[in-house]
C-alpha cells in the first residue's frame, strides 16, 4: 500500500470517526462482558450460597436464571455489536473507501 494512500486515509475524518466509534464500542462491550462473567465466577467463588438460594417455594434457585442469563447475555451482546457494526461501521468504511477512489 502506498504511504500516500495511508496518509490520505489517516487524514479522512470519516476514518477517524470509524476508528474511534468501533474501538469505543468494542472496549465498552468487552468491559461489560468481563464484568458479567468474572462477576459470576467470583460470586460463586466467594458467596456460593447466593446462587443456591431458592427463588420461591419450588426447587429452582437464583443460579438458574443467573446462569441462563449469562448465556443469553453473551449471545445478545454479540448480536448487539454486530447489528450496530452492520449499520454504522460499514457505512463509514464505504465512505472512506469512496473518498480514496476519487
Amino acid at each position: 500500500m502506498k504511504t500516500n494512500l495511508v496518509d490520505r486515509v489517516l487524514a479522512d475524518p470519516n476514518y477517524r470517526l470509524l476508528k474511534a466509534r468501533r474501538s469505543r464500542l468494542g472496549w465498552w462491550l468487552t468491559a461489560a462482558l468481563m464484568l458479567v462473567y468474572y462477576g459470576f465466577i467470583l460470586l460463586i467463588a466467594f458467596e456460593k450460597q447466593v446462587l443456591a438460594t431458592r427463588i420461591g417455594a419450588g426447587v429452582i434457585t437464583w443460579g438458574i436464571p443467573v446462569g441462563f442469563g449469562v448465556i443469553v447475555f453473551t449471545v445478545v451482546i454479540t448480536a448487539f455489536y454486530v447489528m450496530r457494526a452492520n449499520r454504522e461501521f460499514d457505512d463509514l468504511t464505504e465512505k472512506v473507501r469512496r473518498g480514496m477512489i476519487q
Binding site: 468494542g26 472496549w27 462491550l29 468487552t30 462482558l33 460463586i44 446462569g67 454479540t78 455489536y81
Partner: peptide
C-alpha cells in the same frame, strides 16, 4: 448439576471477545 453449567459458560464467553476485538 449447576457446576456443569458454570463449566459450559466458560466455553461461550470467548466468542464476544473475538467479535469485539479481533474478527473484523
Amino acid at each position: 448439576g449447576f457446576d456443569g453449567l458454570i463449566y459450559s459458560i466458560g466455553f461461550l464467553v470467548g466468542w464476544p471477545i473475538l467479535t469485539f476485538l479481533m474478527a473484523e
